[in-house]
Simulated assay, not measured.
Amino acid sequence: MKTIKHIVFLALVSLAVTVQAQNCTPDTTIKVAGFYPNKLADGNVGTAYNQTVMVLSFKDTSVVVGGSKQKVTIDSLKLTKVIGLPAGLGYVCFEPRCIYLPSKVRCIKLSGTPTKSGVYPLKFAITAYAKVNGFLPVAQPDTIKNFSITITGGTAQITENSVASIRVFPNPVTNQIFVSGCKVKPQIYNALGAQINLKMMEENGLWSADVSELTSGIYFMTSSGIHTQWIKE
Rank of each mutant, 00 (worst) to 15 (best):
F147W: 08
T152R: 10
P121D: 09
S180E: 11
P141S: 15
A128F: 05
Q140I: 04
G66Y: 15
S57Q: 04
T115F: 12
Q157F: 10
G154A: 10
A191G: 13
G154M: 03
C93D: 07
I166V: 15
Q187T: 08
P102H: 01
L136D: 07
D60S: 07
P114N: 04
V119C: 08
K59H: 02
C182M: 09
N133M: 15
I177P: 02
S111A: 09
K131V: 07
T150M: 03
A87D: 09
T127C: 03
F124V: 14
A156C: 14
K145N: 10
F178K: 11
R167Q: 11
G154D: 07
S162R: 11
K185L: 10
I149Q: 00
L192T: 13
C93E: 01
S117Q: 12
V105S: 05
A125Y: 00
I74C: 11
D75Y: 05
V119P: 08
A191Q: 15
A164I: 14
T115C: 13
S148G: 08
V132G: 02
Q157H: 10
S57T: 13
G118Q: 15
T174Q: 05
P172K: 00
A130V: 04
K131I: 05
T61C: 09
E95L: 13
L79I: 06
G153H: 02
R97V: 00
V179S: 02
S103K: 13
Y100L: 01
G88I: 09
P137S: 14
K69H: 01
S162E: 13
K109P: 01
I144P: 00
V63W: 02
L89S: 05
A139G: 09
F58E: 11
C93P: 12
L101K: 12
K183D: 13
Y91T: 06
C107P: 09
E160M: 14
E160H: 12
L77H: 01
R167E: 09
T174M: 07
R167H: 12
N175G: 03
G134N: 08
C182T: 08
S57F: 04
A164W: 13
I149S: 00
Q140D: 13
T150Y: 00
A130E: 01
V138K: 05
K145V: 09
I151K: 02
C98A: 04
V72I: 13
N175E: 01
T127N: 03
D142T: 06
V173T: 05
S111L: 05
A128G: 07
A128D: 02
T150Q: 08
L101A: 11
L110A: 04
